[in-house]
Write a protein that binds this DNA or RNA. Structure first.
Lengths: 169, 169
DNA sequence: CGGTTTGTTCATTTTTGATTGAACATCCTG
DNA sequence: CAGGATGTTCAATCAAAAATGAACAAACCG
């Protein structure tokens, strides 16, 4: 059980870490990501060295379950990476801070699936447009459907653009 | 009480309307906007003519309260507009379908405030960076703080760009 | 192996957020 | 201005999502 570096540092969080956590709690809220995930990322962002799950649980006072699930999600979107630490078989985590990677992961995991599902729903709308080209209603539906399709295409195109721009950071 | 145009059309929703509502229910979920707001917008989007609140309540089977609050929000972000209909003193609503306006309203009402609050939190982080330029920890905190500031600036700049691009639609 | 450490899963609880509906304003209109 | 129509507010209810923690699995090590 030779893993606690110091009794002092175990429980407490310095001001800088606290303020970073605060930032990412709010950022998470904006993106409607669970608060606990924001906390975890904030802690790792503020930490100069990799932290094992245990440290996260202790410092943030969250449950093992939350930490485990939160870390899993963060790894899935590439916001967090596990690194090897000599003499310790636990996983240790660090925050990924390259904006492009973060954006990429989030888009891939969270928005792309939705966009693709939207495509399916869009087809259903298309099939619901009445055939009779004469009727006022059918004409209107057709116009609206085309508008939806344009929006969808726009959304699909804007993502790569954002990534491109975020590259510069 | 001469406002119901037909008993038939009062209660039911045609396929096209239903599919549009479906689309916007899911779009709302993506943006973490309440489902009922998506429903309302979807209904109006699918409707060739302006609808009074009563029609929305009936067709979507939602409460007056939801409809009222939903419509208020939609008006605040300029996603919906009230138009005058002769011989009826009720407000009648139509969907705004210009993407630029929609995006503008949403950004102004929902993301801009968050971005500005983030600015405040960011300053707190800045004040939490230790002064001692010698210490490893202080140096690290400084680097991270700068990164946060860059991200914030980036977010603030990307919004106008998106609006610019959405103009083309 | 047997015991220990590490991490995950998932049924339950807690928290948060959305929806309802009844009470309350406001505004027409005869 | 009385009476109905229209719309808003808000306390109470309901539903969805997040957090918990105990039970479980896997990996490691002597």
């Amino acid at each position: 059980m030779a893993k606690e570096s110091s009794l002092l540092e175990t429980a407490s969080l310095d001001v800088f870490a606290r303020e970073c956590i605060n930032i990412f709690i709010h950022a998470a809220q904006s993106l409607s990501i669970p608060r606990s995930i924001g906390e975890i990322y904030g802690l790792l962002f503020a930490s100069p060295d990799p932290l094992p799950m245990e440290a996260i649980v202790e410092r943030l006072r969250i449950s093992k379950g939350s930490a485990s699930q939160g870390l899993r999600w963060l790894r899935e979107v590439n916001a967090v990476r596990a690194v090897y630490v000599v003499g310790d078989r636990r996983d240790h985590f660090i925050a990924e801070t390259e904006l492009r990677r973060l954006a990429l992961g989030y888009l891939r995991e969270s928005v792309e699936p939705q966009l693709s599902r939207a495509g399916d729903y869009l087809n259903r709308v298309g099939e619901a447009v009445p055939d009779e080209k004469r009727s006022e209603a059918a004409r209107f539906a057709e116009v609206r459907f085309k508008k939806l399709r344009r929006w969808h295409r726009f959304a699909a195109q804007i993502l790569p653009i954002i990534l491109k721009v975020s590259q510069k950071l």
